[in-house]
Write a protein that binds this DNA or RNA. Structure first.
Lengths: 254, 254
DNA sequence: CCTACCAATTTGGTAGGGCCAGAGTGCGCG
DNA sequence: CGCGCACTCTGGCCCTACCAAATTGGTAGG
């Protein structure tokens, strides 16, 4: 899976931007309110045992995902993350092992369903032969994975991304891709149970056929069912452990 | 518009991360292929006349939006942006005045419609009294804006975001928010024609009523019509100028 | 007592030099 | 001919220093 290694980041970053994770958890633990001012750069740098440069790099990252705002000659301010934060803030958190809240997990899963059902219908209208080939390849990869007894998380993502790409809307693809980056670890745990792989693969195959046949109604319905299953799984699981959501990695880089 | 200043970034960043924009256009102009290696940090720093620290900050940003990948002790590599780039890469571009391609503009608008139509229906089911109040406030802001003869872009966003928030799905809100950050400048130009504001405001008002009445079918249909209008506007406009899309700011920070 | 002004301090922005670790390369020795 | 050891390149990080803008506090004047 050449593709996988290129696609799924998060391994190389672990060491590098652990600082971002540290800051993120720092913000979470001390209950900073939106709009509140954080300690100065020099202060934070010392607190985390990093130089000001490394710290500024981390701050730049946190600013682009709209978690903080840096006001020149004034200070660093926390933003209303739930409202203004970018999707990438969640990608970052997931990458760095900072657990998402249960609400966030649920919302991501719901949004994923909302979008992918629509996307599947679109894919039926617009898919070309190359898209079909990509989907077929993803399905084949899933087959190989099951035979080899590997973790189905990657081929699963591969299939869904292939469908997303078939919509012809690359911005759509970007967003869906973010979902899979966010849920990466969680999905890996989900598919630790091998039986789930077989079920998903079967559903994927059916969807692939519907898309090839340009049967939008059927394809969308299949996708809805497929994702509703996942959704209810997480909903049930999360009800049992109210506060935090990430399946493992309790705050540490995986 | 206290709120506006807090919400829409892009003014303070101009100076600071102009470097990011420079690098972005640099990548675009020299036709780097995905996977290709960019010049080294020291090289780039000299090329742009910045210190290595400032440059590294910019690189950190570009890495989190998945435009580049930094491999320690190896180099900086361009990623397949259209496929792996994050939505925030587009937000960044828009903020920095790096023009989006026509395809990107169209795709954002289409995706916006796809999502917001769904979201509106959801909002009908879930909106609480506070959501209704927020929507009403956004409508009132629109009214005031029209009376004052201001640019309708902000109140427009305010309304759509209020609806998005009414879905109760904050991740959904994040994504929609990104759309409005991306299209900020463009929408400001769109609403330079005052007559469009009146039309949008009327449509917003109707949607607000449908949402208050929990009439999901009607609300969604109104939203679809509303956004289809915008969509066709852009489609027409873009056909006339094939290559680039941004309405002004030909490559320079606004 | 209030106001206007000035200076010291704080804060971020940036440069520049230096050191380390890891990867990659090529030359020389066995 | 093949193996392995430098040497070099590259990124990662630190630290010091300097600048400019904003803030703050105190003071002198009205």
């Amino acid at each position: 899976m050449q593709n996988v290694a290129e696609q799924g980041r998060g391994a190389r970053e672990d060491e590098r931007s652990a600082l971002v994770g540290r800051i993120l958890t720092f913000i979470a633990q001390r209950g900073f309110a939106p709009g509140e001012r954080l300690p100065s750069e020099r202060d934070l740098a010392e607190r985390f045992g990093f130089g000001r440069n490394a710290l500024r790099e981390a701050l730049a990252v946190l600013e682009t995902v709209r978690v903080i705002e840096r006001r020149p000659n004034s200070g660093i301010f926390l933003r209303a993350v739930a409202r203004h934060g970018s999707l990438d803030a969640l990608v970052l958190s997931a990458d760095l092992g900072v657990p998402l809240t249960a609400a966030e997990v649920e919302e991501v899963v719901e949004l994923r369903r909302l979008m992918e059902v629509q996307g599947t219908a679109l894919a039926c209208e617009r898919r070309g032969e190359d898209d079909l080939a990509r989907i077929a390849e993803a399905l084949a990869g899933g087959e190989r994975c099951i035979e080899a007894g590997g973790n189905f998380a990657e081929p699963d993502a591969e299939f869904h991304l292939a469908v997303a790409e078939a919509t012809g809307n690359r911005v759509f693809l970007r967003v869906v891709n973010s979902f899979y980056l966010i849920s990466r670890t969680r999905r890996r745990h989900y598919f630790a149970d091998g039986s789930r792989a077989a079920l998903s693969q079967a559903q994927h195959r059916a969807m692939g056929e519907a898309i090839a046949a340009r049967d939008a109604a059927r394809a969308a319905e299949l996708m809805r069912g497929h994702l509703r299953g996942v959704e209810s799984y997480w909903r049930e699981l999360l009800e049992r452990r109210p506060a935090r959501a990430e399946t493992s990695t309790g705050g540490m880089p995986a």
